[in-house]
Structure formats: structure tokens, C-alpha cells
Design a protein around this nucleic acid. Structure first.
Lengths: 239, 239
DNA sequence: ACCCTTGCGTTCATATTGGTCATGGAAGGT
DNA sequence: ACCTTCCATGACCAATATGAACGCAAGGGT
């Protein structure tokens, strides 16, 4: 299977370079080009398409100087450009998710994101492509069923299989995160232990991981006898 | 939340009537209209949109007398009509799945399908809409995160339970489902193994499948030494 | 000022389950 | 009757929360 050709559309030069570098680092993807605004993006897409070398995936920033990402998507469809789109958006623009889905946005990335998140989304997109290609190979015997299509679609959903360090489980991490998010005040390891019914060691390990990842902040709690207790507080979303 | 307005586009009168009847039977959906071909579908969509009462979801048959479904989707986007689309297609047309995704097709139904399959796809679409609506409720504090969006996408593209992947048998699945439904509390894989007299591997495989399909929820059971045991709880009756 | 008490941080072996692979037997097609 | 396909099984290794034991830092008493 040939590599998937990607166009990066991003007005900030630093971010654009970063995305391009990400793409090059990934297997199965190759950078087709880069565009700083909507007009040049559309022009590039048209040129590639006319040359018989179309772009298959567009990394599309929603905030561009000339056009909004949704407009670009709409014009692409109107022009018969059927590249898939992974949207990159700021936190405040979430109310356009549904419109984005309607214009064929396959995945959503919220700024700022780590390389791991980025790689994860692209990997699931590649899996989606592969699963669609496989049953279609045998032209005549292509008895792809509902479950084949379902499975292909399922690989587009993001199970966030970001690699955790050994010894940590995804579901436990989710439980801990949910609990902290709900608490207005800072919580201690012991409180998490009691609330979630897990051992103190486990609770502390996950809290420590979240603190290292920057999701929660850690502070010492003095005043009581005994060794000071660490308390953890949910971080307000970073811009 | 108001009901989701649906337009049925289908040239065969019998099938069209059946789809319309299906829609009316489902909670949360209401039939906005019905069209036998592409031209009238586009006209209806435009009219509804102009009247300030737009259609939100289109059940779109791919084989129509005048236009192909993909063309209709493309023209919709060009005209600024952002209704979501659930495509209905015959088996032989699977090679257009990717193009369909690019034009905003959210789900794929393969003819012939049962009412259960139909209802399942619409239910996951409704869930998707609800999950997007929830975090957006608090206008100012709408700090939906990456995981929120991921979850919404996940429910949109969750595989339907009605199409079994290879390796699973219907009768076994029914046994497992019946057992879980009867249990008030969450059950572990070992309990299912003993109760139904099957091996732990088999029990776990079916439970895992049901969890992926969203029929049961999976949670870890802490408190005892050893690796945490997964427990599964009946989630909601699939209509 | 010193030392004792106190309670959490840290580490390690252990227990128990999750996940994968190749095998066996049954059902259906030829 | 043979072959193919499919599903459940058993045995393996890997994963992960637990409990106990030890160490450490602050409070409080002498």
C-alpha cells in the first residue's frame, strides 16, 4: 500500500513546521505540501488533483487568516476534492464539531496536543484506510458485510491508546481523573483511596503520574502531625 | 432537546414507506419528509432550510434514478446544507465508502437490513448528538476536552452489536446477554464462566465484545490482592 | 534543643486476572 | 466420505493492584 499523502494547512509557521515534522516521522504518511492560508490550500489541492497526484488527507487548522476551516471544507467538497480532513481547533470552537462532521471531518485534534496524541489519531486513520482496502481487494468476492464496515468505522473512533508507562491501566487512570475533576478542592491520596476503593499505593501512583503529565498540580499539606501529605488539584485547561 | 428531523430519500415506494415508519417508531426522531429522487431531495432540503426549519439527518439511498448518492451529498455541501447523512447502500458499492466519509456520511447501512440494525445505527447517532450537546450547555465554561470529543466520536462510530465479527456465535452471545440481564449487580468474567459452564477465555471474549458495542459497561473491581478483575454491568436495553 | 510520636511516601514480593496462541472437535458444504 | 470453516478450549506469559515493611519529615512533649 502506498503512503498517504498529507497536506498541512496552518498559518503559524512554527506550528506548521512542527506538524510537517510529525508527519515525516510517521510510517505510512508522506508530506505532500504545506499552506499558510485557505486560498493557497485550495489552490494546492486543485493542482495536485489535476496532476493526478491527489492529496488524501488534510491537516486543517480551523483558524486561518482568510477563511474559516469549515469554509475550506465546504469549498473542497464543492470543487470535488474528496480528501479526508483532520481538524485542528482551539478549545473555544467546539460548538462547530457537528458541522465539521457533516463536511467530512474524520478526526478532531484540540490544541495544544502532544506528539503522542497526534500520532494516535493518524494511526487510527491509517487503520481505517487499511480495513477499507482489505475487503475490497477481491473485486468479485468482495462480500464485505455490515460488520466489516462497522469495524472500519470503529477504528476511526479514538480509544486513546496512548502508551502509558508499564503498570498503569487506562481504565484506572480514567477513574482517577474523573474523580479529581469533580472535586472542587484539592484531594489527597488517602481521599482518592477511600472514594474509589483502591489501595493507597495505587492511588498515589496514578496521582503522581498525572502530576508529572501536568494534568494536576501537586502541593504539600501541612498542619497535622505526621509526615506532610501531598494534595493534588485539577489543572484548569491550558491554552 | 428537540427531536431530530429526518428526511428519507429512497426511490422504491415500499422501502421508503418502511423507513418512514421506522423513523416514526423511534423516540427522539421525527419525519420531516420523503423524497423519491435526488432533485426533489435537494429541493426539499433547501425549502426546509429557507423556512428556518432545517433537516438535521438524511437517510440517503445511494442508488437513485437521477443522481448518485455521492453527488447529492456533494451538492448539499456546495449549497451549504449541513445535514448529517446515513447512507444506505447495496453490497456491491462498498468501494465508495471512503468518498462517502469525506462528504460527511456518518453511518453506513447495507441492504438488506433489519429494523434492529436500523434502530441501532440511529440510536448511536442520537447518542452522539447528546454527547455533543451536553458540554456545550454551559456557554462560557464550555471547556470540553479532547477526551470529550473522542467520546462523542466513539459513540458515533461504535460498531453495532447486530453484526457479529468472526469468532463469535449468536447462541453463545444470547446466553451471556441473558445472564447479565438477570443479574442486578455487575458480574465478573469468572462468574459468567462458572454460571454458564464455559471457559474463562470464551466468557471474557463475549463480555469484551458487549463492552465494545456499548451494551454493557466495563469497570475494574479493586480491593482484593492480585490483578484487578473486570466487572461488567448491563447498560441499557437496546430497542 | 532534643527526642518521640505520627502518619504518609516508597519499595518489593505476591496474588490473581487479562491476553494470546495453537489445538481439538463440531457443523456445514462439496 | 472428505475437506473447509468456525468456534470453544487449555496452557502459556504478561500485566497490575495489593499488603507489608521500611524510611522520612513534620508536630509536640519533655
Amino acid at each position: 500500500m502506498s503512503e498517504i499523502r498529507v497536506l498541512v494547512v496552518e498559518d503559524e509557521p512554527i506550528a506548521a513546521a512542527a506538524h510537517a515534522a510529525y508527519i515525516e516521522r510517521l510510517d505510512g504518511f508522506t508530506l505532500a505540501g504545506s499552506a499558510p492560508d485557505g486560498q493557497s490550500a485550495l489552490r494546492l489541492l486543485t493542482e495536485f488533483s489535476a496532476a493526478g497526484n491527489p492529496v488524501e488527507l488534510v491537516l486543517l487548522d480551523m483558524n486561518l487568516p482568510d477563511l474559516h476551516g469549515l469554509d475550506i471544507a465546504r469549498r473542497m467538497r464543492a470543487a470535488g476534492l474528496f480528501a479526508d480532513i483532520i481538524a485542528i481547533t482551539a478549545v473555544r470552537e467546539l460548538n462547530i464539531v457537528r458541522s465539521a462532521v457533516a463536511t467530512g471531518v474524520v478526526q478532531y485534534l484540540i490544541k495544544p496536543f502532544t506528539y503522542a496524541t497526534f500520532a494516535d489519531k493518524l494511526a487510527s486513520y491509517r487503520l481505517f484506510r487499511e480495513q477499507l482496502a482489505a475487503p475490497l481487494a477481491g473485486e468479485a468476492g468482495a462480500r464485505a458485510s455490515q460488520s466489516d464496515v462497522d469495524q472500519a468505522f470503529a477504528s476511526l473512533r479514538a480509544p486513546s491508546e496512548l502508551s502509558l508507562p508499564k503498570g498503569l491501566a487506562v481504565s484506572t487512570l480514567e477513574s482517577v481523573k474523573d474523580y479529581i475533576k469533580q472535586q472542587a478542592e484539592a484531594v489527597s491520596a488517602s481521599e482518592v483511596m477511600e472514594a474509589l476503593g483502591m489501595s493507597r499505593v495505587t492511588a498515589r501512583r496514578y496521582l503522581e503520574y498525572l502530576a508529572d503529565a501536568g494534568t494536576v498540580t501537586r502541593a504539600a499539606r501541612y498542619g497535622a502531625p505526621g509526615r506532610p501529605e501531598n494534595e493534588y488539584r485539577w489543572n484548569r485547561p491550558r491554552t
